[in-house]
């Protein structure tokens, strides 16, 4: 490895991340195809509504497994909230100004922790559980419960995941390679995760 690079993710983490992203995209496209008559052509791409339903269900199974697999990688870091995390949140990660520097962050910053806990784990649990309810429920009560919460969680996902994609690509040059090559530069680590830099001894 080049001396100026730092290993950010393991091969398994990257593989699982793209499993998550791919199943998610399939779920969102078919989901929109079912939600709006005007977007039903999306399901035509997946071979019609009948096939799209099967694809949606099984992509949901892949997504479920993939979310479970992320627990080992991110849950431990995410539930440990530190003083610096609150600082990060009160300055909104410095995203609203060109000059603010980021409070020193561990391997994951406060935003990533919240994204993981609130979106991936919490909303993920809601959309997964209600997905299985809709798959198997026969009673009006369960179907209404599932239909409502599945849609609510869908709104949360389609509103937050584009922000995650933006923040991990265009908004922070040098980040995307963490999920492709698995490495980031030392300069990137010092800039975005100074506490982690100290922990791994590069500062």
């Amino acid at each position: 490895m080049r001396h100026d690079l730092v290993q950010r993710t393991t091969g398994w983490e990257r593989f699982n991340h793209w499993l998550l992203a791919l199943s998610f995209i399939v779920l969102v496209l078919t989901g929109f195809g079912f939600l709006y008559n005007s977007l039903n052509w999306l399901n035509t791409i997946f071979g019609g509504n009948q096939l799209a339903k099967e694809i949606h269900k099984w992509a949901g199974v892949v997504f479920t497994l993939s979310v479970l697999f992320t627990l080992g990688s991110y849950l431990g870091d995410s539930i440990r909230f530190t003083k610096e995390d609150y600082q990060w949140l009160s300055s909104l990660g410095g995203y609203l100004s060109k000059t603010t520097t980021e409070p020193p962050q561990g391997r994951l910053n406060a935003g990533q922790k919240l994204y993981y806990l609130l979106v991936v784990v919490l909303t993920g649990a809601v959309i997964i559980i209600t997905g299985f309810i809709l798959w198997f429920a026969q009673s009006t009560g369960w179907l209404r419960f599932g239909h409502f919460l599945h849609n609510l969680a869908f709104v949360v996902f389609v509103t937050t995941v584009p922000l995650h994609i933006y923040l991990s690509t265009a908004a922070n040059p040098g980040t995307f390679r963490a999920m492709t090559r698995g490495t980031v530069t030392r300069a990137w680590v010092k800039r975005h995760h100074r506490k982690w830099a100290k922990e791994i001894g590069i500062e």
């Binding site: 609510l152 389609v158 509103t159 937050t160 265009a170 908004a171 300069a187």
Partner: peptide, 29 residues
Amino acid sequence: LKPLALIGLGGAVAAAAAHYITVGPKEPE
């Protein structure tokens, strides 16, 4: 909820684009 799904998606994409062209990315030092 139904309208909010598209509004939310559009809003998130618009917010990201607006951020990119106003505040801009965190350029390397």
